[in-house]
Amino acid sequence: MNLTIDGIPFDAPESWTILETARFLGLEIPTLCYHEGLSAWGGCRLCIVEIGTGDRTKLVTSCTYPVEEGLVVHTATKRVISARKMILELLISQCPTSKVLQDLAAKMGLNQVRFSPKWENCIYCGLCVRICEEQMMASAIGFANRGNELKIHTPFDKTSDECRRCGGCMYICPACTTRCEGTNPENVLCGRCENTLQPTCLEVYENNYHCWMGLKGECGTCVTENNK
């Protein structure tokens, strides 16, 4: 399958998806609900790329889209970036306490969330459901209800006979790892920490070395927008 990703012509095996090809070529596509050991789901939509040429381009999830002969893919056009940022904004407003989401936001340079935060603890990425079924062979948890009542839990909300308490769901959950509280725990976006060695938040945490030494669980270095 001959395709072009970001101008690179490449001959990809038939069974590959766009995401796998891009990763093979070293092109970075942010993902959230994708995991190598699990089936692709296309739920979080963060891995969208633009396919096609001219006016007839469309956005597709690269993790579920199989490579095609003559496919032209752009992984980082303006349209892709702005759509991705919007998706991440929506995800963060659902669960601002997730470290994975905050890291993605920092990486993608998201500096505003225009939606009112919900402070939920699940983003319905389906990773726990899939790891339970595909890797742990337990099928103990699943989606229940629908719409705004959607939930992930065991059938009948009771202790499941199938569950072996392996903890796989918690291991893989992107919302279970809470973010660094940073300078302002009420803020929807965290302190935008990057692991550089230059602390920049000293003016906020005056004489508070706990912060940047990581003693309180914080990452150490806050880079505010102005300092960038």
Partner: peptide
């Protein structure tokens, strides 16, 4: 799996 039957039923 029961979780799927339950999912459909709910």
């Amino acid at each position: 799996p029961l979780k799927d039957v339950y999912g459909v039923a709910t």
